[in-house]
Design a binder for these strands. Sequence first.
DNA 1: CTGTTAGCGCCTTCAG
DNA 2: CTGAAGGCGCTAACAG
Lengths: 326, 326
Amino acid sequence: MPTVKDVAKRAGVSVATVSRVLNNSNKVSEETRQKVLKAIEELGFKPNLLARNFRRDKSNLILVILPTIANAYFARVVKGIEDTARKYGYGILLCTTGNSPEIASDYLKLIERKQVDGAIIASAKISKDALLEIDPKKIVQACEFYPFLDTSCVLIDHKKAFFEIVDYLIKKGKKNILCAIGNEGIPSEEERKEGYRQALEKNGMEFKEENIIRCRYGSTEIYEKLKTLICSKKYDAVACSSDLMAVGAIKAAKAVGLKIPDEFAVTGFDNIMISRLYEPSITTVAQPMYEIGEKATEILISSLENNSFSKERVILPHDIKTRESA
Amino acid sequence: MPTVKDVAKRAGVSVATVSRVLNNSNKVSEETRQKVLKAIEELGFKPNLLARNFRRDKSNLILVILPTIANAYFARVVKGIEDTARKYGYGILLCTTGNSPEIASDYLKLIERKQVDGAIIASAKISKDALLEIDPKKIVQACEFYPFLDTSCVLIDHKKAFFEIVDYLIKKGKKNILCAIGNEGIPSEEERKEGYRQALEKNGMEFKEENIIRCRYGSTEIYEKLKTLICSKKYDAVACSSDLMAVGAIKAAKAVGLKIPDEFAVTGFDNIMISRLYEPSITTVAQPMYEIGEKATEILISSLENNSFSKERVILPHDIKTRESA
DNA sequence: CTGTTAGCGCCTTCAG
DNA sequence: CTGAAGGCGCTAACAG
């Protein structure tokens, strides 16, 4: 593999000049530039990014940490991140943790070790002390906000969104609304639960802890629990914290023989493809997934490059998608 | 940031010894090792991977190129790649091309430039000349095999799989089977079409080009085309080249009022989650997605590290999943 | 506008 | 078992 030195020799210039041409410095005469380009061409020279990055103390890589990409929600967020990173000349190093904080910690070490310039944490579980030594301006949180992590963040207003969709159910005449929420310890899930509570209270209904169903976000495991509950015919709706939960809920309602949405209404959250394709199609909260990824990346790169850290808390708008299930 | 030099000074040893400790060389006395570890601890030293990678001429990064991760099929393949890469100490640099060969080419340049050690191309469209200068042992193809790309590969037998599922439809008594296939120029799609043809011929049925429906792999756009076709009631089944196509096909059959599977049967391909969740659930070909990613990664890393290139052509087993739609 | 030169941090012979 | 020293390829002062 030829190096700048070889190119320099061939072009009859110094390595500094070759480097200038490589980096589009304008302090090179057109004539010299051409000579250098010719030598590069002839030798088939390719810059060694390992050397360049080392010298510049910069990897141009962004670490992306999230629980999974099997869920279409995160897949879409990643697309927003990737496109934006590419636009600014960065690549993305992908880490799906399956919610293991240990895996997340291991990857986060890459920041201090300079394998990556910074990280976007999209809703992945992180242990607090994994972050002790990391410069907060090198991290942006997306989708989710862990307050103990003092970084910029980009997400929607989960409480408000859930409030709105429950309020929608109530306006549709539903009187006994269940709430299916992800497992505990995740801030956005607690926010959504609070939105549910506030919607009930605003409409003069009583909030009961027993009406909260806890189940995994990215699965349909709600099915069994719900089927048992709704046999009683006491309930006429469930507001779910994800579209996959909603699918499970619809299956349960069908299994019990309830007509959707009249006898039993179901709402989802996220607006991933399945909510549109499923039958019945699912009324849900559309999150601006791509835009969350995009904005988070822009904030991170700007923070990385300007070296000016202003903690940003960005709330992006959501949107209720009314469909057949409610 | 402290460097090996600082650690050496603090521990009262040479940088070589520090380096030995860092790399678990056994040629260090336990006593010295402890001194060094103590100094590392006290200084909060973190090895600079930019420097190490440069020095070792190795990035420990694998490039993963695929059309999209919005499709659960690829998301699962990526998981297999990521887990395996991690196991061997590699990270993955993700590139989703949306089937743009230009984007793929840009990223592939990272191999010669040493930003990555090698690449897995999972079914992404590549232009042949993007690869001219790349060492074939640094690339493994997954899911798909472009023969002009003379590399190792890991995939299923697409022809056989499609043959089997069409044969299954015939055994179920279907007489006029349509075939929905992805757009042209993709080897696996042509293989599948050939499997369709052979299944018909084996059963004494006539293959007609007009019974081939071309449509995008990752979408339900088949819906419109199919709805028009099946109004005639001439057809009693469609074998689709993806589960999402199958969803579109089922919607079309429902729209026309055909009973599934008796009046109209539908099969998918891939066995992604939606094929299990949809109603009716979809009979499909299960691809070993995770294992494809896993195996491809193992081959790549072994080829990278042993520097011994044996072109491997790995065909993994598939499996017909019988469900409600056929 | 161009060249000389000094490292960046680490690993790895080679000597001892 | 340990230390000294060279150098990976590139960039960026600095000098001219």
